[in-house]
């Protein structure tokens, strides 16, 4: 089956946060206690009961403040860190490229929460499991759009075949560039290709996106090799130096520890 992707055009987002509400409604996620964090961005972080949220950014251009919005959620990476580190087999990629977390299998070790390069996985005290956007795979299987796409009033969030979405994103970028906007695409090649494609009107950093995200297991092999090489040196040296048998037949006295 062809791969799918979500299309997010930040230039069309008004920060209404209808997607946040729709996501909670459809997925049965609890409202959570929150605190004022200095802007209308709310709640402060993603979490096990908050699978999508609109992040608010303020950038300054020649003394003029620009008020920027970006809807965040799981990016459904091709090289998915969460799926790689999950020790309970609870996170799987399906044939459409969607990364789906099965909360019935999740044990709640939080490794995926720490592994996600986008901070898009949270832990829910209510369920005792991790939680994240599952791209409403059940809705898609029944011929419907994800809840956030359905609810977006401006067309800033859309869903489609990944090939088609990429084409659409590039057309939009060409259009924005022709009107003098520093438009960029994000998600085409990052981590083997994300299944959320952004159209940005500024650099990814401005929108809180990592410029060169790495899969959490990138250092795995090197870490094991350095540990095991070090182990060889470290374990042999002190024990051989301190405890080697000088060669003569030491009698079994009390101070050799042998009864």
């Amino acid at each position: 089956m062809a791969e799918l992707a979500k299309f997010i055009d930040v230039t069309k987002c008004t920060g209404c946060r209808g997607c946040q509400v729709a996501c909670k409604q459809w997925n049965g996620l609890e409202a959570i206690k929150t605190t004022f964090s200095g802007s209308y961005e709310n709640p402060p972080t993603m979490g096990g009961e908050t699978w999508t949220k609109v992040r608010f950014f303020e950038a300054e251009d020649n003394g003029k403040v620009r008020f920027l919005f970006r809807k965040t959620q799981c990016m459904h990476c091709t090289e998915a860190s969460c799926a790689a580190v999950c020790a309970a087999g609870a996170i799987k990629k399906d044939d459409k490229g969607m990364v789906v977390l099965d909360q019935n299998k999740c044990v709640g070790c939080k490794n995926c929460v720490l592994a996600c390069p986008f901070g898009a996985v949270g832990f829910s005290e209510k369920t005792g499991t991790s939680g994240k956007c599952r791209m409403c795979v059940d809705r898609i299987d029944n011929g419907m759009e994800p809840a956030c796409v359905k609810t977006c009033p401006t067309g800033a969030v859309q869903m489609g075949d990944r090939e088609q979405i990429l084409k659409q994103a590039k057309e939009r970028i060409d259009f924005l560039k022709s009107s003098g906007v520093n438009a960029q695409i994000y998600g085409e090649n990052e981590l083997g290709g994300l299944h959320v494609i952004y159209v940005l009107d500024d650099k990814p950093e401005v929108y809180g996106l990592p410029v060169n995200p790495q899969v959490a297991t990138a250092n795995l092999f090197g870490s094991w090799v350095s540990a095991l090489v070090g182990a060889g040196v470290m374990l042999i040296a002190p024990f051989w130096l301190m405890f080697k048998d000088p060669g003569k037949d030491v009698s079994e006295t009390h101070d050799t520890g042998v009864k």
């Binding site: 580190v85 490794n111 720490l114 790495q214 250092n219 870490s223 094991w224 540990a227 182990a231 470290m234």
Partner: peptide, 27 residues
Amino acid sequence: AYTGVLLASTSAALWSSTQYLGLLFLV
């Protein structure tokens, strides 16, 4: 060694930007 490598296989910069954490915890 695993206790260190466990931390290294995440996206936390302090843990994942080095290959020495497994070795450090082992030593």
